[in-house]
């Protein structure tokens, strides 16, 4: 085929898919459907919650947050061992926008990647939204909130530490979910999938933590009032956009 013949000469940024994006063919139908079900349910819940509780001023940050996460996901950073990784962004979106608007933002990012750029399969889009988005926006947000509460909710230092730890954790947990889905689909044995995914994503998570921390600290310094749950010391003259 012409396409296959041309393939070696085509300059490829990396591979047909990037990072934890699962391509079509890796997951079987039942696993894909369960992931679709989970993703649709949580996105529908997020739509309702955003409608009910968010205010106007969240909208520009939703746009900017989505644009940044899309752009940052294109930048694969090298990790030791001839592998690379990139930001997933679920935790970043959850911290900046809260779990509900954060979820909508991540869903938009993965839809654009799958529809426009064939990055991540369409049949497994539910799984990708779940592993890389919802694990970070929901799991990440509530872990971040718990850590912040434990460390002192109103201090920036607590917020920074919570962001970094949560970002790292969300990548590792997302990778574990991905491994589990691959194993349940019969693609690769569970132990193999878990160890292999873990080895790389323990390191990729460090990049996630650094980038998320950088982005959150930039917003905190420039527009603290836009953050979902800003520390009280951040800027009393701004009003949180949540009702």
């Amino acid at each position: 085929m012409i396409f296959t013949a041309l393939l070696p000469s085509l300059p490829r940024l990396a591979s047909p898919w990037l990072a934890m994006h699962i391509p079509d063919g890796f997951l079987n139908l039942p696993v894909s459907l369960v992931c679709w079900g989970l993703a649709i349910a949580l996105v529908a819940l997020a739509l309702n919650r955003v409608k009910a509780t968010y205010k106007d001023r969240a909208v520009p940050l939703m746009g900017v947050c989505a644009a940044f996460i899309f752009a940052a996901q294109m930048i694969n950073f090298p990790i030791p061992g001839g592998t690379s990784g990139h930001l997933l962004g679920g935790t970043l979106a959850g911290v900046l926008l809260g779990p509900w608007a954060g979820t909508l933002v991540m869903t938009v990012v993965f839809m654009v990647q799958a529809l426009l750029f064939q990055d991540g399969g369409l049949t497994v889009l539910g799984a990708n939204i779940f592993n890389m988005g919802l694990v970070g926006t929901f799991g990440g947000y509530y872990l971040y909130k718990a850590l912040r509460s434990a460390l002192g909710f109103q201090s920036w230092r607590a917020m920074a530490i919570a962001t970094a730890i949560t970002a790292w954790t969300s990548v590792v947990v997302g990778a574990l979910f991905c491994a589990l889905e691959l194993a349940l689909s019969g693609t690769v044995p569970l132990v193999v999938a878990l160890t292999a995914m873990l080895v790389w994503h323990l390191m990729i998570g460090v990049g996630e933590a650094l980038i998320s921390l950088l982005a959150v600290s930039y917003i905190w310094r420039t527009r603290p009032g836009l953050i979902f749950d800003p520390p009280a010391v951040a800027a009393p003259r701004y009003f949180p956009y949540r009702s």
């Binding site: 490829r12 899309f70 930048i75 690379s84």
Partner: peptide
């Protein structure tokens, strides 16, 4: 970032790709 840095992105296989 998307227009300028993307040319410098690592071309190594990423996590899942590498495992595959």
């Amino acid at each position: 970032i998307a227009g300028g840095l993307s040319s410098f992105a690592s071309s190594h296989p990423d996590g899942l790709n590498r495992v595959a």
